[in-house]
């Protein structure tokens, strides 16, 4: 990797009153890379991602996006990134189309791109439906659409499929996979689902208690399983799940 990283995180720390949410994380993400941040509840995923998004400030350490810090470059960086938060409720009584138009206006983007986005997320039929009447999966697709409006160089998605049924989850995956082949976009996505990380991402970061436990490509991580103290019973069933449990001592969805 001799390309300049699109995101560089150096020794970042963040505490809330009594909790140390992130305790010294270093991470480099190259352009076009799709990275999954895996971890159980309370691992510090949201805190980490929101620091990358410039929504929260680290207590210590530095974050660079395309070589720039948030301080002093907010306006520039906001145009480059797209994101969806873990939980956002859009305005209940606006339609899908109106919501897209509203967010597009923040980026000074016109109708055509909204139309494109609507197609991309497959909500043409729901164009006039109020947000309040959408299903969970449709809402997540709308959130994803809003994240994609400005054709971001960096896409940050916090648990985009949590709480969705397998079908709705696959619809989101399909959109993201299409993106992977088309756009020059890097993705950081947090998830509880091993399968999601395997399907979408080339690089996996496992965190718990605010620290990175392991990172690497899927092949690298699976290779390491050979050296684990707790060995899976049958070799052919080895998955990332086994790695995860042996690292954290708990299941992902605990």
């Amino acid at each position: 990797m001799n390309v300049e990283p699109i995101i560089e995180i150096r020794n970042v720390h963040k505490s809330f009153k009594t909790v140390q949410a992130v305790r010294g994380i270093d991470l480099c993400i190259s352009p076009g890379q799709f990275v999954a941040v895996l971890g159980p509840n309370g691992a510090g995923k949201t805190t980490l991602v929101e620091m990358i998004e410039g929504i929260q400030q680290p207590d210590f350490g530095d974050i660079f996006i395309m070589g720039k810090t948030w301080k002093g470059n907010e306006k520039y960086l906001r145009h480059l990134i797209g994101l969806s938060l873990q939980e956002t409720h859009f305005i209940d009584k606006l339609s899908v189309w109106e919501t897209l138009r509203l967010f597009a206006s923040f980026f000074e983007i016109g109708k055509d791109r909204c139309e494109e986005t609507l197609n991309l997320i497959g909500l043409e039929e729901k164009r006039k439906a109020w947000v309040v009447n959408l299903s969970g999966g449709q809402r997540q697709r709308l959130a994803l659409g809003i994240a994609l409006l400005n054709k971001p160089r960096v896409l940050l998605l916090d648990e985009p499929t949590t709480g969705l049924d397998p079908n709705a989850r696959r619809e989101i995956w399909a959109i993201l996979l299409k993106l992977k082949n088309q756009l020059n976009t890097s993705l950081v996505l947090t998830t509880h689902y091993m399968e999601e990380a395997e399907q979408l991402c080339d690089y996996i970061v496992i965190i718990d208690h605010g620290k990175i436990l392991k990172q690497g490509s899927i092949a690298e991580l699976l290779g390491e399983i050979q050296d684990l103290p707790v060995k899976p019973l049958e070799i052919r069933k080895i998955t990332l799940d086994d790695l995860f449990i042996s690292l954290t001592g708990r299941h992902l969805n605990d």
Binding site: I91, D92, K93, L94, E98, R101, L102, A104, S105, F106, E108, I109, G110, K111, W130
Partner: peptide, 22 residues
Amino acid sequence: ERISHNQLFQLILANIRELIRE
């Protein structure tokens, strides 16, 4: 079209819509 891209215009529109739909 230029006006309709304007964020203040869209914000105002969104608030009006929300209000009259209540």
